[in-house]
Design a protein around this nucleic acid. Sequence first.
DNA 1: GTTCCAATAT
DNA 2: CATATTGGAA
Length: 320
Amino acid sequence: MGEEVRITEYDVGGEDDDRVLEWEAGLPSVDDLMPLSQSLVPAELASAFSITPEPHRSMIDVNRASQDTLSNLRGQSVKQTLNKFNGFKSFGDDKGDEMVMEGDETADLTGDGSDSRKLRRVDSGGTGALGGVGEEADSALRADDSSARTSKRPRLVWTPQLHKRFVDVVAHLGVKNAVPKTIMQLMNVEGLTRENVASHLQKYRLYLKRMQGLSNEGPSSSDHLFASTPVPPSLHESSGGGNGNSHAPIPMPYPPQMVPMPYPPPQMVPHPAGAGGGAYHHGFDSHSHPYNMMMPQRDWSGSKFASVSPYQHRMTPNDK
DNA sequence: GTTCCAATAT
DNA sequence: CATATTGGAA
């Protein structure tokens, strides 16, 4: 069994600082990785081989470790990086809604009760304030607030990836079937609520409508996210019409493997939301920022919510 | 009783 | 502007 965390061992060589950013970009998110608390070796197996499992490691430990490591790499920007780690949040929300999804090779391990710790860090302007390098990373969190219950969900941020998925699903369901509940289910994004989808769907419909009216012309400044999304050419109806099946609450289009868009299990990555300053918008022109650009299909990060995004840029390049 | 959907609120 | 929340209608 190899060791998991030995990131600290990599030596930096004489690389540029920029390299570091590149690494970050490609690195899996925290949620991407196996839960730290989980041992790689099953207990029985371990005992059989006389392996003593390592004591538990918590996020705090890791953060500390990474802080150390990063401190070595670059004396300064550490904080920013750490924020990325702390910035993600995890929801334990279970509405008991199970997917009707098949069991293909997704081998979904995601769903497991991966530790639903609520690690919440909403730093926003803090960056400027002290900017100290030795900024506290832990912030153990006050116990009472840690329970997500009774607390409101943060605003969902529809990242390009999320939206992409949304559009795909909507495209595949007919117009008739493209209702919030179904969409939500097919999207298979953890923590995504029906309301979230409903709200987005509403906006999306308006967008489509507007698009139809003005079929040609007009890089409207209000395009944003939508502009870059391949709109379903024709909103064709799916099996809904001819399907005489009375049962099956959710009409699965086709067998899993045949379905043109097999979605990977949900994952999430911390999003730079407001703080960093840069937002995506427009899809292009973003190549100066390490994170959150339209990545190749893979890594469809940002399936989750992000901290509030207080800032929004108002740009009217060529407003019409 | 649930879900959709449009309007309205934050 | 982007989402959330609301309330009437299917």
